[in-house]
Design a protein around this nucleic acid. Structure first.
Lengths: 162, 162
DNA sequence: GGAATATAGTCGTTTGAACGATTGTTGTTA
DNA sequence: TAACAACAATCGTTCAAACGACTATATTCC
């Protein structure tokens, strides 16, 4: 009996290895993200808003589409995400003069300060959660996950059609 | 440059292998779950409500606490989850006579029929998503994910303290 | 036997996520 | 030059998720 089977209180084994792998991915994501959600909530953020700030800090001012493209997890309504960050003063928007469809979003000093305060705790939490695995295992885990995504017909890249 | 780094439009490499593994887990979970969310939505369900029905079909009538314990992803308000299923006629509740704190939840015939209609598509989607990986890879992926969860200080099991 | 504690479930409320439609602007084509 | 198509962002709306408090009941302890 696998660990997951035991954890789910399942008497019969999984129907397939693909099902078991899927459930392991989802449960592990929830386990890892739970800690980060608590950390971010303490700073009035969600995972996605934290991610958006990281993107803006790293890439510099970006359009809504670019932000959307770079998010780890697809967010279909980037406008509302940016709205919430702007309301807190962490980003500011500027409509482009040369193409008025486009809005350029930039992180503010307040946003930089907020992120600076999170850099340590985020890194510490990554370490705390996964440092019991060695470098080879982490590499192999990432490789298998990338391979899993490569074959999945449901795309991870945002906006791609079903 | 890893696949994920490229997919995220990140110029610099990841700060650590633990961060990269984490993001791969989360992104893969979203990619896999996206397809299932669409399938379930077409039947008026969410992943959690589908999961709850599966638990009840498998284990028989269960208390709310037992359902909560067996869910793949923690749901802090099982009552509302059961509310929504009951409103649709897929489950029914009965307050226990011998311990009136306890509610016993059972799947209904309508619930069984709904699940029966989903068994094929769910299995097909699992296969479609992950069948490009061989048995050894799937086993190794599950093993590494279980190991990842084992060391993470943020527990996957519900109700466990932070 | 009653007070205190624990358990199981429920509730009030807020908020973020998501879908799909809409609006405004730019580019393309006839 | 105007109609059409595409693009970028925004909006209306619904609803699931989540937090923490609350209620009712059972158990434990003095």
């Amino acid at each position: 009996m696998s660990t997951l089977q035991h954890q789910l209180g399942k008497r019969e084994p999984f129907r397939s290895a693909t099902q078991e792998a899927h459930l392991n991915v989802v449960r592990t994501a929830a386990a890892l993200e739970g800690g980060f959600a608590r950390l971010f909530r303490a700073h009035g953020l969600t995972g996605s808003s934290y991610n958006a700030l990281r993107i803006l800090r790293g890439a510099g001012p970006s359009t809504c589409s670019q932000i959307g493209d770079h998010l780890v997890v697809r967010v279909p309504d980037v406008t509302r995400l940016i709205d919430r960050l702007a309301a807190r003063g962490f980003v500011e928007r500027a409509r482009s003069d040369e193409d008025r469809r486009v809005v350029r979003v930039a992180i503010t000093d307040a946003g930089r300060v907020l992120l600076a305060g999170l850099d340590g705790p985020v890194e510490a939490l990554h370490t705390q959660q996964l440092n019991h695995m060695d470098a080879g295992e982490l590499r192999e885990l990432s490789r298998l996950l990338e391979k899993a995504r490569a074959g999945a017909n449901t795309p991870a890249t945002p906006g791609a059609p079903l």
